[in-house]
Simulated scan of single mutants.
Amino acid sequence: MVDAAPVPGFDPDSYALRPPKSCLPVEDGDVIDLGDRTLTVLHLPGHSPGSIALFDPDEGALFSGDVVYDLREGEELLDAISGANVPDYVDSLTRLSELPISMVYPGHGEPFGRGRLLELIHGYVDSRTRPGTI
């Protein structure tokens, strides 16, 4: 994946990520102040028990991780993986639908707007809340 060295003499085989000096757990509702932007932590279980997203209420931006992402034809949001819980996922996505989100920046894939977010949420929730589907 790397097609150019960031600095002369860079050796990718000797590169290692250093752990952070400190790391604290976050809780639903915590606010992370970045100076010019604040992000609110949203605990959104379902895809996985500890799923979170970060919401910038001033910009309407959601950094969704794997909670919600755009799908290609034939794909579905993953809820049949270890730790997933469909009723929690329905609740989490419903919660997102009620926030003033204007743009979603997922953990993978391209960003998308509110219209597509609601389309994905309603498609998932409708498919999982019909009798006999949960």
Score class of each variant (00 low, 15 high):
residue 67 V to D: 00
residue 33 D to F: 03
residue 100 P to L: 01
residue 110 E to M: 11
residue 52 I to D: 04
residue 117 L to R: 02
residue 80 A to W: 10
residue 24 L to M: 15
residue 84 A to I: 08
residue 83 G to R: 00
residue 88 D to T: 00
residue 43 H to N: 12
residue 63 F to C: 10
residue 22 S to D: 15
residue 30 D to T: 00
residue 79 D to V: 11
residue 86 V to C: 08
residue 126 D to P: 12
residue 60 G to S: 04
residue 127 S to F: 00
residue 22 S to E: 15
residue 111 P to A: 05
residue 13 D to H: 12
residue 31 V to P: 08
residue 62 L to P: 06
residue 112 F to L: 01
residue 12 P to T: 03
residue 115 G to I: 07
residue 108 H to G: 04
residue 131 P to L: 03
residue 63 F to D: 11
residue 66 D to I: 07
residue 118 L to P: 14
residue 111 P to W: 03
residue 95 R to V: 08
residue 19 P to K: 09
residue 88 D to Y: 04
residue 29 G to K: 02
residue 77 L to Q: 03
residue 91 D to L: 13
residue 17 L to E: 15
residue 93 L to P: 14
residue 37 R to W: 06
residue 53 A to L: 04
residue 90 V to H: 03
residue 106 P to N: 02
residue 17 L to D: 14
residue 14 S to R: 14
residue 132 G to D: 08
residue 73 E to M: 06
residue 13 D to S: 13
residue 34 L to Y: 02
residue 56 D to A: 05
residue 63 F to T: 06
residue 108 H to C: 02
residue 16 A to C: 14
residue 63 F to S: 10
residue 64 S to A: 13
residue 5 A to L: 12
residue 62 L to S: 03
residue 73 E to Y: 07
residue 43 H to L: 13
residue 11 D to M: 09
residue 36 D to E: 14
residue 110 E to C: 12
residue 14 S to I: 10
residue 84 A to H: 06
residue 2 V to M: 14
residue 61 A to V: 11
residue 54 L to P: 15
residue 92 S to Y: 01
residue 88 D to Q: 10
residue 40 T to L: 12
residue 92 S to D: 02
residue 85 N to L: 06
residue 52 I to R: 12
residue 92 S to R: 01
residue 9 G to C: 01
residue 62 L to W: 02
residue 113 G to P: 03
residue 134 I to F: 09
residue 61 A to D: 15
residue 118 L to I: 14
residue 54 L to E: 09
residue 62 L to R: 04
residue 98 E to P: 15
residue 127 S to Q: 00
residue 62 L to H: 03
residue 41 V to F: 07
residue 95 R to I: 07
residue 9 G to V: 00
residue 70 D to L: 09
residue 132 G to Y: 05
residue 106 P to C: 01
residue 130 R to F: 02
residue 134 I to C: 12
residue 79 D to P: 10
residue 66 D to A: 10
residue 55 F to N: 06
residue 59 E to A: 11
residue 50 G to S: 13
residue 117 L to A: 06
residue 105 Y to F: 15
residue 21 K to S: 15
residue 107 G to S: 08
residue 93 L to D: 09
residue 4 A to N: 10
residue 53 A to T: 02
residue 107 G to Q: 05
residue 31 V to R: 09
residue 36 D to R: 13
residue 85 N to F: 07
residue 27 E to C: 12
residue 123 G to W: 03
residue 64 S to W: 02
residue 10 F to M: 13
residue 37 R to I: 09
residue 113 G to D: 02
residue 64 S to I: 05
residue 132 G to N: 04
residue 108 H to N: 03
residue 48 S to T: 11
residue 130 R to C: 03
residue 65 G to V: 06
residue 53 A to C: 00
residue 14 S to E: 14
residue 131 P to R: 05
residue 111 P to S: 11
residue 8 P to T: 04
residue 79 D to G: 13
residue 101 I to N: 01
residue 131 P to Y: 02
residue 130 R to S: 09
residue 49 P to Q: 09
residue 108 H to S: 05
residue 33 D to N: 10
residue 133 T to Y: 04
residue 67 V to Y: 00
residue 93 L to I: 08
